[in-house]
Simulated assay, not measured.
Amino acid sequence: MATLALAHALAAAAHGFRVIPLSRAKLPAVRSPHHHDPDPLPCRGACGRIGHGVHDATADPEAVRALFAAAPWATGYGIACGCAPYHLIGVDLDLKNGTDGAAALARLAREHAFAIPRTVTVLTPGGGRHLWLCGPPRLSVPNSAGRLAPGIDIRGVGGYLVGPGSSTTHGGYRLAPGSPAWSPAPVPPVLLRLLRPPRPAPPRPYQPGSPPSEQHAAALVRFVRDSREGQRNVRLFWAACRAYETGAGAELAPALVEAALHTGLPAREARATVASAARSAARRLRSPGACSPGERSGWG
């Protein structure tokens, strides 16, 4: 099974798609090198080892073989989204629990007057389908679940799609009859605008060094608590920076971490993000400009 998955992954890599091996549970098959660390910090592969999920994704055939050699139990492969040359956007149309993602997308197309292009379409074991679309190079589309409409999940930067030819616990993934094999169509401009969430409105302006009011502190916590998937680390980092810059970081940190946990961010990751914000805020106070909302990109 691993040999078959590797063959399919190499075929995808030959067309420029970056791939990783997946287990039967559709999770990255190579174990994290940090799983024994008592309190691991988020790592995207800077340590030089493999085992960082989608951050291991590669189109180099030798590197692909090395990844699969490290996970001989792999039964499938994932294709990283948001990467050059395709800047892939995956539209996951579910058919379960009373939702019909394909029908929901068709309604959106009618309401917003765009055509759903003929593109790579992968059938999933549960009766749903994945549409592959090319995104623009300098525009990041975040991952989301049900934000566009019930039954429609989006895989963007930091996400991955299960590739055709993969075998999972619930069945196999295969190209739909008549689907182009490796040529995703460009995302319709109107749909792209719908996929891009509005920029979050930050809390009211702050004065560095001045203690925050109760209203401002509550706004920072609410700013984190209202985070969606794909924004959680960015918002937590931004709010923690603001708190530490006003001298209230130690006081507000527990509430910010609790708000992040409410969004589904893992506890270790939330604490590591707040600690990173504390260090960055200290640098900013010494040298203005060192801490900015774009310094971290969201893992969650």
Results as ranks from 00 to 15, higher is better:
residue 2 A to P: 07
residue 3 T to A: 09
residue 11 A to D: 09
residue 16 G to F: 08
residue 17 F to R: 02
residue 17 F to N: 06
residue 18 R to M: 15
residue 23 S to V: 04
residue 26 K to V: 11
residue 34 H to E: 11
residue 43 C to D: 08
residue 44 R to S: 12
residue 46 A to E: 15
residue 49 R to M: 15
residue 49 R to H: 13
residue 59 A to Q: 07
residue 60 D to C: 13
residue 65 R to W: 04
residue 71 A to C: 10
residue 72 P to Y: 15
residue 80 A to G: 11
residue 86 Y to T: 06
residue 94 D to L: 13
residue 99 T to A: 06
residue 99 T to D: 08
residue 100 D to Q: 00
residue 102 A to F: 13
residue 112 H to L: 12
residue 112 H to W: 15
residue 114 F to V: 05
residue 115 A to P: 08
residue 117 P to S: 04
residue 120 V to H: 05
residue 121 T to I: 15
residue 124 T to P: 13
residue 129 R to G: 05
residue 132 W to D: 04
residue 139 L to H: 00
residue 145 A to H: 05
residue 146 G to L: 14
residue 151 G to R: 02
residue 153 D to E: 12
residue 154 I to D: 09
residue 159 G to R: 00
residue 163 G to A: 08
residue 169 T to H: 12
residue 171 G to P: 11
residue 172 G to S: 11
residue 179 S to I: 11
residue 180 P to L: 13
residue 182 W to L: 09
residue 188 P to Q: 05
residue 190 V to T: 08
residue 192 L to A: 03
residue 194 L to G: 01
residue 196 R to W: 12
residue 197 P to S: 04
residue 202 P to S: 06
residue 204 R to Q: 13
residue 208 P to C: 08
residue 213 S to R: 01
residue 218 A to W: 09
residue 219 A to R: 04
residue 221 V to S: 04
residue 221 V to E: 12
residue 222 R to K: 03
residue 227 S to N: 01
residue 234 V to G: 04
residue 235 R to P: 04
residue 241 C to S: 03
residue 246 T to L: 10
residue 246 T to V: 03
residue 251 E to M: 06
residue 254 P to V: 09
residue 261 L to M: 07
residue 261 L to C: 07
residue 264 G to K: 01
residue 274 V to M: 08
residue 276 S to A: 10
residue 276 S to R: 06
residue 277 A to T: 00
residue 286 R to M: 09
residue 287 S to P: 05
residue 289 G to Y: 14
residue 296 R to P: 05
